[in-house]
Design a binder for these strands. Structure first.
Lengths: 234, 234
DNA sequence: CGAGTGTAAAGTGTCAACAATTTAATGTCG
DNA sequence: CGACATTAAATTGTTGACACTTTACACTCG
């Protein structure tokens, strides 16, 4: 035990509760697609599934509303939030600002270990990109961004960023990268890492901000072509 | 009227609910100081005050937790969140990034009317600052920042920024500006307005980011001297 | 007198029932 | 046959009661 000063450590009091548990579970049901986007949630049914009453379920849903994952319409019910492209674009903008800030912070505080880890992630992504192995690239890409945010050392920033990324998962359609997009995207990663290694906060901000903004552009382009296809079909 | 396609407009269905109402009311009780920071909220008592049962109150409190205004400890109760200086510093950092982004956006999209409004606000602040009239300066200062964020035209950004500002009100101690701080702060405002007028997004970002960061520094300095005074007294 | 133990009160957690509203279904009339 | 009113079913909104946990208090013993 870590001794004296923490005289009455009560951290093992119950740390979770039924509504918190339900919140997590319903969240993963949404993000996994077990509850379909835009669809309605039936409180009775959901409560029955978990073998609890509606009270705790309703509390969990209130939390999820504030997190931006569901929408509550009075007397109408709870709906899994669905994002239109305009909202997604706005989110990408804010995400760009937050991610840029993270890189900026990291550029002025990263130690050798963190830099090495960044390099490793980048190298692995380069390999995956050259092999056009999207399934390998995707989790590395996620880890890369999350690592930068996490190591920036600002808990509020981390929470906001992750909340935004979580909400963005409500937009199915665009998360795919096609063909040489992998390599393009990874070149941007290289520029970010270089800026952080050189301890250049301004360059780190700029390259990181631009990286997310370009992601937004790629998404938009894809969205437009999808909409065109939609029209043609009609 | 925009006619046909909006055939069954149901927007006049009930737009609010008891929990939402309670959420707003409890929120203002917190921000007004009618519920003291760090203190505990008694569900029974609160429900009795509003003449409702505990269910809706609990739902409202769940929302407020997600908004970062209260903390829920299982089996212990709900506490008005109290921020330590470290958290406030982190929040200021994120706020700087968001505000900087807002100014950056506004610099590339503002019209003549918005620029005129900014000028007006700046002039009024300058007058108030010269007169050392803090009571007049404060709301103008708030309006200035909020105007820039609002007119940036990104709803997600606006929501995030306002949420952060709301949370920062939980930190009582530092919101005061003393003496010539008013004039210093307003010179920074002038630089922001200039950058936006010149449609220079990069300068707008930089001046705005720095402005909030300087606010953070001023707050920190004040906090340190307060802590010193505290020590001396002990 | 102080530390520790046991008990009562207060408060939170959960539930099931009831009220109010919305939605779906049915039937009626032009 | 289609639009409209009416009724029934399903679903959300709210409540009061009860179970469980924590906290406060009195008591005992060293």
């Amino acid at each position: 035990m870590s001794s004296s000063s923490a005289a009455h450590d009560v951290s093992f009091l119950r740390l979770t509760s039924l509504p918190m548990l339900l919140e997590r579970e319903i969240e993963s049901m949404i993000l996994d697609g077990r509850l379909s986007i835009g669809g309605r949630i039936n409180e009775n049914q959901l409560a029955a599934t978990f073998g609890v009453s509606r009270g705790p379920v309703r509390e969990a849903l209130r939390s999820l509303e504030a997190l931006g994952l569901v929408e509550l319409l009075p007397n109408r019910g709870v709906f899994i939030r669905s994002l239109d492209i305009a909202q997604v674009v706005e989110m990408y903008g804010v995400r760009a600002a937050l991610f840029g800030y993270a890189a900026q912070l990291l550029a002025s505080r990263s130690d050798a270990g963190e830099l090495a880890r960044l390099r490793t992630l980048l190298d692995e992504m380069t390999q995956a990109a050259q092999a056009h192995d999207f399934d390998r690239y995707y989790p590395l890409n996620f880890a890369f961004h999350d690592f930068i945010v996490e190591q920036a050392g600002n808990g509020v920033l981390t929470a906001q960023y992750r909340g935004l990324v979580k909400q963005l998962r409500l937009y199915r359609a665009g998360n795919l990268m096609t063909g040489n997009t992998l390599e393009l995207s990874n070149e941007e990663h290289a520029r970010i890492v270089a800026a952080i290694e050189q301890r250049d906060p301004i360059a780190a901000y700029q390259t990181s901000f631009d990286h997310v903004e370009r992601g937004k552009e790629r998404l938009l382009a894809r969205s437009v072509s999808l909409a065109r296809a939609e029209e043609r079909r009609a």
